[in-house]
Design a protein around this nucleic acid. Structure first.
Length: 436
DNA sequence: AAAAATAGCAACCGCTTACTA
DNA sequence: CTAGTAAGCGGTTGCTATTTT
């Protein structure tokens, strides 16, 4: 960064952009100069950290306390580790992010010498990069580890955001899938979650598989979401989507009592979904997904369960708003959005699992497995997937069909229901046990 | 070589939470 | 209990450097 101005230079006023002042002297904004750094360091050496408003008042800096704190925390602290992140740190970030989501401060606390801002910047940059090339964000081992831990936590009534985090699963540059439900009879209704998955993927560049995983990993997701506390605001253009999904949400209720079959309809194996739906949430009375507040037998069903702050990854927060009422377009409006790709897109030559998410992955797997059954799967293990081995990452898509992978069954199973020109969604299950 | 695109980073903004009077 | 204030946090923006066209 260039040092354009010194402390109290005329440019201070220029940089301030007006507004905030300190005793009539406009507070400076923009890059810090070496002089300012020196003043701040000197002040902190003498008076110690903290009391940032006092720093602003007494240090002579034309900077707000907030800015001083940030500068100190991110650049001047003596214990800061400079330089690029080490592979071990990257691995740790992967792991922690899989577990915590965007809790940058918490992640940074576990990485000595690194700041939340640094990690956040690294992650956002990386996400962007990974998305662009259509790679999964987390290495598969971390995916599965986090997923497994979350599953265990669910069983123990502990919430973890990992399996439902938007970055948890493969990332794709998600083109809006065009699915035309030519043969969708009135009785062959689409499962609302499928619509939600597809829609959300399309509109927010969120991988459908993430939403799918969320729906499936918390088998009572529908109901839980409907009672989510609207403590997090909806910002900007997202709000219309949540409104729109509200109708979907209501429609979802008709299926919420049998997540297992619903999951099967989306291609998850019965054994896996059994674990999710029966083992994890046998009585639908564990807890609201995403909430730290248990909904155990001691709790009254009518009592609000929001004693504790929800700490959800952004997507969960977003989805948590689905329950709030708002005007929205009807379900039918999705028909125009969700159209099956034209034949040229279904062409095996152009299909790649990297390009458009689960459905394409499904098609891709179908076609490749049919076309080249003799080809044995190359499964390469690569503990930390980084940019240096994009081909390996692409190859690893194949590992998602591994039976032990939480998503492994999805592709293969969906295939059996899926043909390139038609979408055959299973009819809504006859609800018998109300266990979802 | 110049222009455009992209990456990386620093800092700001607005919100929430904790604390205090 | 309430209002005001400070601090912390996460998302976003804007700038510079680098790479690509």
């Amino acid at each position: 960064m260039t040092s354009k101005v010194g402390v109290g230079s005329p440019s201070v006023e220029e940089a301030s952009g007006g507004g905030n002042t300190r005793g009539g002297v406009p507070l400076k904004k923009g890059p810090w100069t070496k002089e300012e750094d020196a003043v701040l360091m000197d002040y902190i050496r003498k008076h110690g950290e903290g009391n940032w408003s006092a720093v602003q008042k007494h240090s002579g800096l034309a900077r707000c306390g907030k800015s001083c704190r940030l500068r100190w925390a991110n650049h001047l602290r003596p214990d800061l580790k400079k330089g690029a992140l080490t592979p071990e740190e990257v691995r740790r970030i992967n792991e922690l992010h899989a577990k915590m989501g965007n809790k940058w401060a918490q992640i940074a606390a576990k990485l000595p010498g690194r700041t939340d801002n640094e990690i956040k910047n690294y992650w956002n940059t990386r996400i962007k990069k990974q998305r662009r090339v259509g790679l999964q964000i987390y290495p598969p081992d971390i995916c599965f580890q986090a997923f497994s831990e979350n599953k265990q936590n669910n069983e123990l009534g502990i919430f973890s955001s990992a399996n439902s985090h938007p970055d948890f699963l493969p990332i794709n540059d998600f083109e809006i899938p065009t699915v035309e439900f030519k043969k969708l009879e009135p009785s062959q209704q689409l499962y609302p979650w499928a619509l939600v998955n597809i829609a959300a993927s399309s509109f927010f560049d969120i991988p459908a598989t993430s939403l799918l995983a969320q729906a499936l990993s918390s088998s009572n997701t529908c109901s839980g979401l409907s009672t989510m506390h609207p403590s997090k605001r909806i910002r900007g253009s997202e709000s219309w989507f949540f409104g729109m999904t509200d109708n979907l949400f209501q429609a979802c209720h008709q299926y919420q009592n049998n997540g297992s079959l619903f999951a099967q309809s989306l291609g998850f194996s019965s054994s896996y979904t059994h674990n999710l739906t029966s083992d994890n949430h046998p009585s639908f009375s564990g807890e609201i997904p995403g909430s730290h507040a248990p909904l155990n037998g001691n709790s009254s069903s009518s009592e609000p369960k929001w004693a504790k702050k929800l700490e959800l990854p952004s997507l969960q927060i977003q989805m948590a708003n689905w329950g709030s009422p708002s005007p929205l377009p009807s379900l039918e409006s999705f028909d125009t959005l969700i159209q099956y790709p034209p034949n040229e897109h279904a062409d095996s030559g152009s299909l790649s699992p990297r390009n458009s998410g689960l459905l394409d992955a499904v098609l891709y797997e179908s076609q490749t497995s049919k076309a080249s059954k003799h080809n044995s799967h190359q499964e390469t293990s690569c503990d930390v997937v980084d940019d240096s081995c994009p081909d390996l990452q692409e190859t690893q898509w194949g590992t998602y069909s591994n039976p032990i992978s939480p998503l492994g069954h999805s592709a293969a199973s969906v295939l059996s229901e899926y043909t390139p020109t038609e979408v055959h969604w299973m009819s809504p299950p006859v609800n018998s046990d109300g266990g979802w």
